[in-house]
Simulated assay, not measured.
Amino acid sequence: MPKLIDTKKKTLTVNLSLEEYTNLHYFQTLLENSAVTKSDLRGNITYVNRKFTEITGFSEDELLGQNHRILRHPDNDNDIFKDLWDTVRGGKIWRERLLNRNKDGSDFWAETTIIPLISTKKGELIEYIAIRQDITDFLKLKREIFAKQNRAREEKEISKAKDSFLILFTHELKTPLNAIISFTKYLIKHAGNLDNLPNNKALSLLERIEDAAHDMLSNVMQLLELSRLRANKLQYNISTFNSFQALQEVVEEQRNMANERGVEITCENLCELSKSANLYLLESDELRFKQIFRNILSNAIKYTKNRVHLSLFSDSTTWRLRIEDNGPGISKKEGVFDLFEKEKILTIK
């Protein structure tokens, strides 16, 4: 590169090509807009520029002579710094996105480049220069955009779930409503001639109306429970109760629905009273316990062909309940606990 030396003024004039000048100007602009430090081979700070003090809140006097550990954030893994030192001591440039800690304790994210400077004469490391680009605001904006996208996606899923729930809920209400309407119409039709209607016939109709009303109430209660659960307002009443007896009570509740559908409920070590019933004491919420068992059993009754079998197995410390039916089963096992998940059943006539 051509050089002109003025011996009188002791100045050096360097003639640069346009490309060399452009590269030099770019590098100077980069340094002016970056947080730059220099450190000795032990990591002690020997130079900081103005941008670095503006970002970190430390003054130049507070930093010079200090080790770079003054900026280390506790959330960083030690492996990051091992990789850093292994790289720069090997004479290679190290680049990484690094979390730092400012003087006031706030976080400072930086795209960090550490360059090892090597003596051209001896070929030895003499110092390190670190160039940091502050990306804290960029990452904050990125997180806000990501959170906004997540909220939009969740709102869309909630809206879809609400639509699915309304369809399912309407369907579940339709069956008991139709039963109530049909049985009530029959009684109204024979209202003027009730004396000729067999007592057991009238009583049976009234009982079925009552059962249908209870089914509707159960559906409404499940809707309220779901609303409380989503609002984190669901309360639990913990008590000690006989789980064996609680299971028996639910079975007896569901027998009417089973009989109407022509489903036989058979039991093993459950439906009959047991001398060891007192061994099945459980500390939990009895209402929720029954609710879970009731939902599972009622599903088995609804979707079986004609049989539901309950088996209770126990030892000195635990017990296990198995509910089996001869329905079509569930092909999509991984989605069995998803909200509104329901197996599609093909009926061939």
Rank of each mutant, 00 (worst) to 15 (best):
R132H: 02
Y186Q: 13
T7C: 05
D107N: 09
F52K: 08
E210N: 15
L30Y: 10
E272P: 04
I5T: 11
D61H: 04
R208D: 11
T46F: 02
K302H: 14
L206V: 11
K9N: 15
F169H: 12
F289S: 05
F58D: 02
F58I: 01
H73V: 02
D325N: 13
S298D: 05
L71T: 07
Y303G: 11
A179C: 12
I135Q: 07
R208Y: 02
T266D: 04
L346A: 11
G192Y: 10
T87V: 00
F27C: 14
L16V: 07
L31M: 14
T29R: 07
A35P: 01
R307C: 11
A202E: 03
S218L: 08
N237G: 04
L18K: 09
K38M: 03
K121W: 00
M216P: 03
Q248Y: 00
G329H: 04
R228M: 08
D61T: 14
R95A: 14
L31C: 09
I292Q: 07
N237F: 08
T318I: 06
R132C: 07
K38L: 03
T113I: 05
N33L: 13
S227R: 06
K148N: 02
Y47N: 13
T184A: 05
E253T: 00
K305Q: 15
W109L: 10
H171V: 09
E268M: 01
G105D: 06
S284N: 13
N49Y: 10
I115K: 09
L203P: 09
A147S: 12
R69C: 11
N200I: 06
G65V: 04
A161E: 11
T37P: 10
E157D: 11
D77V: 01
